[in-house]
Computed example of a mutant assay.
Amino acid sequence: MASPITVTPWTADLPPARPPAGVRLFHLPTGSYDTRGAFAVAGGSFREQRVFAASAVLVQHPAGDLLIDAGFGADLSEHVGMLARMERAPHRRATTAAEQLRAAGYETGRLLGVLVTHVHWDHVSGLDSLRVPVWINADELRYGREDPHGAVFRHVSAGLPVHEYAFDGPAHLGFPASHDVFGDGSVVIAQAGGHTSGSVVVFVTPASGERFAFIGDLTWQMDGITRRVERSWLMRKLADVDPRLVRENLSRVIALRDRLRIVPSHDLAAYDAIPLLASTFPTPADPR
């Protein structure tokens, strides 16, 4: 079993963020799937069944909105069928991000695109019904186009415009390079490869001032943070392109755990502080 990660808590000031009024976050849960605890995190039990969340997060900003990841799509069964047999797991689809936006009466012209933490199937399946640009960096785009684990991404992103951003900003909260989406510190993408070639952490500061770190799959669930452990040896070999770099980036996140809210993509409870889109926007009246 991997030894616990030794970290020094972050004590320096957090980078300045000046989110304008109206920057808000909403959770769009799109379904879930099951795996064994032993596959979820080092030290997990084969007898324990874990539920993995598949979600999108809407970031509202006066300059335009973004979804962080896309969750499950309308053609989920087809996408699962594209996976290697050992990667298929019992899954449940809820309403897609596109369906939730439509039900909320959301003005889709405000959506600048989907900012993917990385291109694995359970983060991009929902692109099949979100016909908007994909926000992605060059390393992750190359991974998505070439790696066998990018098959679903290649399928659902076909014909979609690509917004390719560069890490043109300085180190950010210990991560080596960054990109400030709006120039006000409210949404900062940090370079955090290792799980995939160009995977990222997205730091978001809404108008409330509370800070969030959407860490993708640096760890799958919160006990990787609280227990300071990686994935199991087998899953590090199978799931990560550079396990050493994942451990390094995970240590950076763990150092921040007392300073902001950390949201691993597949831990449903980690989204508890973010309101559901469906509970915030009134459902449009039936025109009949």
Rank of each mutant, 00 (worst) to 15 (best):
S3R: 13
S3E: 14
S3D: 15
P4N: 02
I5E: 00
T8Q: 08
P9T: 05
T11A: 14
A12F: 06
P15G: 02
P16Y: 06
P19Y: 08
A21M: 06
A21H: 09
F26N: 03
F26E: 07
H27K: 05
G31F: 01
Y33I: 06
R36T: 14
F39L: 14
E48F: 13
Q49P: 10
F52D: 11
Q60E: 15
P62G: 05
I68W: 03
F72P: 07
A74I: 07
E78R: 15
R88T: 11
A89V: 13
P90L: 01
R92A: 11
R93D: 03
A94S: 15
T96Y: 02
E99H: 03
L101G: 12
R102W: 11
A103G: 11
G105E: 01
G105V: 08
Y106S: 01
T108G: 11
T108A: 14
T108N: 12
G109E: 08
V114S: 06
H118T: 05
H120W: 10
H120S: 09
H120P: 04
G126N: 05
D128M: 08
D128N: 09
D128F: 12
V132Y: 02
V132I: 07
W135F: 04
A138P: 03
G144W: 00
G144A: 00
A151F: 03
V152T: 08
A158L: 13
L160Q: 09
V162M: 09
E164D: 05
E164Y: 07
G169T: 03
G174V: 05
F175T: 02
A177G: 11
D180F: 05
V181K: 06
D184W: 05
G185C: 09
S186M: 10
I189L: 04
Q191D: 15
A192Q: 03
A192P: 02
G193Q: 04
H195Y: 15
S199G: 14
V200K: 10
V202W: 07
V202D: 10
S208E: 07
R211K: 08
F212E: 11
L218I: 01
T219N: 01
W220E: 12
Q221W: 10
M222C: 08
T226F: 11
R236Q: 15
K237A: 15
A239Y: 13
V241R: 08
V246L: 01
R247I: 12
R247L: 12
N249G: 04
N249K: 02
S251W: 11
V253A: 07
D258K: 04
L260E: 08
R261W: 11
P264K: 03
H266Q: 10
D267W: 04
D267V: 04
L268D: 14
A270N: 03
Y271I: 02
D272Y: 06
A273E: 13
P275V: 09
A278I: 03
T283D: 12
